[in-house]
Nucleic acid binder design. Structure first.
Lengths: 327, 327
DNA sequence: CTGTTAGCGCATTCAT
DNA sequence: ATGAATGCGCTAACAG
């Protein structure tokens, strides 16, 4: 293992100078700094984080706890986060372990800033782990649950935008398939805002793991066209995989017979149907950016404007939505 | 921050004794050990991991370098690896950075065992980083390229099994879509082994990023049925996403008009078509297991039997393959 | 059984 | 602008 002492020897200086040079501290001539940098690179020097941590407590590595669900979306997001991070000279480590275990791992490895994707209620074990975690945990997704820094995704508002889009196209009956979460609230809100009737008959409460999911969706799709909506919102990427397949099986043509909006814009979605799918949800680039901005100045974030802590959803109109037949 | 020195003072011993007591080392009377433990607890002592790591640089953490491709398969695999690892008391960290950066990150964080998924030629930068890496890099996937430990996936043999399966069903013309890799070699090998004609016309060389991918596949599918094969092998999950869509668009019914075998068995595949898809490829559970076994005893692995270093593919027959029409 | 001490790799302060 | 020296908290080897 090569240390700054080795580099010092090679460069013919003392290791104090090497330390200054490599850390961009003043008091080193640019010439020797460049030389030392070159030698370090060439010797493949890797700083020892433990030693660094002994004397000062900073790291440029950020840990991310990978959520169990939201698979594809998060997969895409992590690619973008990585790009953003390296642009900023930050490093990224991912953990797919249970959140509390992940936090412990990060702690052992001197990672003191962690991004946590909130998708369900937090377990007691995780809350405990979070409390004893010496660094910052940025909570992303759900409502600003607790004390620490957070970045809220306005899922409700996003789905509301979907309703608006469909209403503006002229759809009178708009259906919703998904779970009774914020997204569902956004749906009902949208119906109110844009003067559409709330029709319990047009709501299919289900999720991919629901054993009756297939029956419920197929049941809805097989109704007489008079008895179903002209547009539907599907509340997650996971459910969209199912929905697309069942819609094709039921020979429901999209968008001719049914307009379709999905939540979360992942490329794989557009491979599911012959047409590309209109989506709402956070913009993946914006999200990656904001995450890095926020975590980069995690201490200052407490003072931020409330609005700054929130990510709006965006609507991306594609081929799967159009005015209802006969308009 | 309370250190062992503080505890030592409180307990009236030296801090060396405290260290031994707290770490369960022999050479401390049980009486003083208990007393020291109590004091540590009462003073709310938290060991300084950085300092510990300075002296004892061991971890039970394994790093994984996330490959740029193999999207969903690797995602599923990493879930299984995580489960396997925690069963064995090991921890996992993932990096999505460039392989050489990932290796440096791992080194910084004292992770000295790394799993690397080989999917293309290795860059010079990575080979250099690997050479100066102080730990073990387990290469998985490709041919046992170099010196270090490796686990080869028999992609060629897997595709060969696909050909065999189709041949046994009675298919005379079997097509292949994909890149000219090991999998393609397995295809040609299979044709030879099972007495099928090699027909360049039934090979569509493409990949998801190929700009002409869509045209090539659609062109093949739109041929007169007499001019195309009765079965096709698609060489990757990524390409299958495209193929399934194009097949539906071209109104080619599977398996009635065309039998279909995919490479890599990921659940998402079976949401693409009305029927589930027959696949070949490494079994994800077996792979996770073998990876953990191998990395757990990374030093001993050098002596292993050659056959032990290889993962066979398995064929999972589902609805997308059946005898050709008219048989 | 317990005390003593060297040194892990580094940032930093004080000299020069 | 650079060298020298100190100490961060801890383990391990050695001394008593």
């Amino acid at each position: 293992m090569v240390t700054i002492k080795d580099i010092a020897k090679q460069a013919g200086v003392t290791y104090g100078t090497v330390s200054r040079a490599l850390n961009g501290e003043p008091g080193v001539s640019e010439k020797t700094r460049a030389r030392i940098r070159a030698i370090a690179e060439q010797m493949n020097y890797v700083p020892n984080l433990a030693a660094k941590r002994m004397v000062d407590r900073s790291t440029n590595c950020i840990g991310i706890i990978w959520p169990k669900i939201e698979g594809l979306f998060f997969y895409r997001l992590s690619e973008r986060i990585q790009e953003e991070a390296s642009r900023r000279g930050l490093r990224i480590m991912l953990s797919v372990a249970k959140p509390e275990d992940a936090l412990n791992s990060f702690q052992e490895h001197f990672i003191d800033r962690v991004i946590h994707w909130v998708y369900t209620e937090q377990t007691a074990a995780f809350i405990a782990a979070k409390q004893s975690f010496p660094g910052t945990v940025l909570e992303v997704g759900g409502r600003s649950a607790g004390e620490g820094p957070c970045l809220e995704i306005d899922r409700k508002g996003a789905v509301c935008k979907a309703v608006r889009h469909l209403a503006e196209l002229g759809h009178e009956r708009i259906a919703f398939m998904g779970a009774k979460t914020d997204k569902w609230v956004g749906y009902t809100q949208g119906l109110v805002d844009f003067d559409r009737d709330y029709n319990p008959d047009d709501i299919v409460v289900t999720r991919p793991s629901d054993p009756d999911m297939e029956a419920k969706i197929t049941g809805y799709l097989n109704r007489d066209r008079k008895d179903r909506a002209t547009a539907v919102i599907v509340d997650s990427q996971g459910l969209m995989f199912e929905f697309a397949r069942l819609a094709q099986a039921a020979k429901v043509r999209i968008p001719e017979q049914l307009s379709l909006v999905g939540y979360d814009d992942v490329p794989e979605l557009h491979r599911l149907l012959p047409v590309s799918i209109t989506t709402v949800g956070p913009d993946i680039d914006v999200l990656a950016n904001r995450l890095m901005d926020t975590i980069a100045q995690a201490d200052a974030v407490e003072n931020n404007d409330r609005n700054d802590r929130r990510i709006e959803g965006v609507l991306t109109v594609r081929e799967s939505t159009r005015p209802p037949f006969g308009t």
